[in-house]
Amino acid sequence: MDAFDILGRIITLTLFAATLRMATPVLFATLGGICSAHSGVFNVGLEGLLDLGAFFAVVGSVALGSPWAGLALAIVSCLVASLVFAVIHLELKAHEIIVGLALNLFAYGLTNYLLVAILKATGFYKSPLIIGFQPVNIPLIERIPIVGELLSGHSPLVYLGFLGVALAYVGLFKTPWGFHLRAVGENADAAEAVGINTRLMKYAGMLLSGALCGFGGAFLSLAYLNMFSENMTAGRGWLALAAVNFGEGRPLKSLVACLIFGFADALAIRLQQFGLPSQLVLMLPYVATLVVLILSAIQRSRKAEQVLESPPPAAKPVEV
């Protein structure tokens, strides 16, 4: 078996289809992070929100027998948690990073507690009672040879995630609402002075952040795997934070980062099937994140250096 052969067996169409799937939960959390970042809040609670979403999606699905009900419960629970976050940060003036970390801790404790208390399970809960999302085949596209295999047959949430990127772009950069939100995040004083209710906008940004994480969490426990387990978010909220950072607030650029993580995730699973130690290949997404972080930082500092190295522009004096 030569190297190309091995490579050919690893890099298949399924790998790319899996990339889209694995990118989805990070993508939802990233879109959430972008919304709160534009309102001026650095949301480090994404991880905890995903965790809550994943858990309550299972609860909703089991209780009401429908994945959509699970999704609804996931969204509601994340909205409540973000509301608490927002109140403590905005009204009681606690530091955003600390409140975010507290949310992660709280969510981790609560889901594990309720896992035992409500679902009577330790460590993980898997049951035929969990009704997950069914894959959707897209009528025309599924027949196109390669494209069909790649794009068709995913969970509806995958399509929603990618639709979300477009919606976020339009919402943030084209509508009056986004126009106001970004103003609040960049200079809250200026927004307040023209009568924009900055507090309301910040709440909106953070609640949206929560709702989107609800989608992401539901995807994890009702579409990617039909189960809930401790630590099932596996740091995806943090990957999302890196993607937000990489995209500098632009949804499309962040999508690129999400796809990189998705690919690393998918590759890790694939490589495990080839007998590589799981512990090592599972490091891939985190290493990829570090690389993405470094690349985006270098790119930023290059930009700054280029400006510094350019000859003193005589045409552009310091104006008064």
Binding site: A183, N187, A193, V194
Partner: peptide, 22 residues
């Protein structure tokens, strides 16, 4: 009280901006 990354016109209309549809 201006938003640095917005244009002057955008700052002037911020909050009461003219709309076309949504």
């Amino acid at each position: 009280k201006l938003v640095p990354s917005y244009t002057l016109a955008q700052n002037i209309v911020l909050g009461v901006e003219p709309r076309r549809g949504p």
